[in-house]
Each structure stands twice: as C-alpha cells, then as structure tokens.
Design a protein around this nucleic acid. Sequence first.
DNA 1: CACACAACCTGCGAGC
DNA 2: TGCTCGCAGGTTGTGT
Length: 270
Amino acid sequence: MPELPEVEVCRLGISPHIDNQVITDVVVRQRQLRWPVPEQIAEAIGEPILSVSRRSKYLILKVSTGSILIHLGMSGTIRVIDSNLPTIKHDHVDIGFGNGKALRLNDPRRFGAVLWLSNDVDEQGVLSKLGPEPLTDDFHADYLFEKSRKKLVPVKTFIMNNPVVVGVGNIYANEALFLSGIRPTKKAGTLTKKQCALLTNNIKKVLAAAIKQGGTTLKDFTQADGKPGYFAQSLNVYGRAGQPCVTCQTTLKEVRQSNRSSVFCPSCQK
DNA sequence: CACACAACCTGCGAGC
DNA sequence: TGCTCGCAGGTTGTGT
C-alpha cells in the first residue's frame, strides 16, 4: 500500500481522531512483524497523544514518555475503528483509546513494524540513517547533484535509497523519472545539474500531487474514511508496460532493477 | 566503501 | 478444480 503520499494521507486521516486521546491499552495479537513489537510500548499506556507526525514512511505518535513508530511495510493499513469491532485476519496490533476507539494495524505480509522510542534513550534507531524529506527545502538540486557524483548505481536505485532521500518508492520513482525525461538505468553520477533540478522538482511535484489526490490505490489502499486514492489515474508509466507513452505513443518498456520493475518510454527518457 | 542480491511474508492472478 | 509460478507499494543484512 504505502509510499510517502499514502502514509501522509493516512496521517491526515487518523490525526483528528486520535490527537489528545489517552492510550488505554495496546493489544498485540501477532508480535512477529518486521521486528518484534517491543514490550516497552506499554510505557505509552495512560498517556495522551501529543502529536501525530511523519518521518519518511514512519508514522510517529508522540506521548510524554516517548514515541510509537508505525511503518506499514508493503501491505499494511491502519484504520481508526470502534475498539469492539471484531478482528479479521492479519489484524496484528490495536492501540486503544479512552473514547472507545482504537487504531488497528492490519498487515498480511508483516513487513510493517510497530516500534517504541523511549525518551530515556538518545539513539533514534530506525530514524537515524534517514536522508532529507523530499518535500522540504533540504532536498534540492545542488544536494542531489553533489550526492550523486561518482555514483555508478542506476539513478532509480539512487533516488529510492533512504540515506539519499526518503519516501520515494517504486511507483513515484518511475513517475518522477518519466516526467524528468531520464532513463531509470542512467548512472546517477552522469546526471547533469539541470537533470538534478528537473528530478528534484518532479519528485516533489509527483509526491505533492499524490497527497492532494488521496494517494494511489492499487489494490487495497483506502483513506481513513474508506475512500480510495485517486492518483492511480494520473500514473504515466507505472503498471503500463507494453502500452503507449502518453506523450509520444511509443510502446513503454519494462526492465527489472534491484528486483523491482521499472517502466519507461525509450523515446522520451534518455 | 560501493554495489548486487537474498531475505523477510502472504495473497493473487496467470497458465497449465 | 487445483496446482505451481511469478509478482506485489519496503527495508535490512550479507557477501563480493
């Protein structure tokens, strides 16, 4: 389900329902997610949610004693539900609130995570190795240009690498490269300054547009209110291999990079 | 250090 | 109908 826009849409959806709510219990039905759900998460019980923020694809529920981190992996969804709603398959974790509602994580593939960052500990764990947020001014053309010098990896692999920039997953990497006229296989180190400017702008553009349209619904992603995201109809290349380019009608080509599919227009993207 | 690739899981659609 | 195969929105860990 989630790249950055979907996580942000999720955050916007759940935040009004759980902000300031006191956590009354944490129910873990399946502890084995990407990492085991830590017992210390109980330190959050009795505390009100102070803020609901996001860093990269992590949702951060801040309380006075620390922060609950939630990552949705490939297949995770969270909904605010009545806490007595019967569970279904893969409903792994509930965070229950004083108002009878609960935040419920469902994640068939279990690549997601629920973690605890205690205020008592300095280290930021999974958050410590993350690059700049793409939608902030810290991510700009000169940064990408300098960072990519001498890099032999394909540009698509490069922009999907978290220490470089966070939140760019397979869908939006494909889309941003198409909009920039850059082939996914081009070596990152050969990007010109101008191409870096195009690429950074288009990454920002495509992510912001996707958030505005409620994310991309492929199979099961829904916004907090159950509506699908509408960005899927804006996709130019992702999932369109073999179909004509929207610009020049050339048949879109598919290659695999780092075991992920890349779709591009052999004519528009150099 | 830089890069390639396997690993973690379940579900679904295609093809036989 | 039912089997096997390949593929899926992410990230980390290992090996060369």
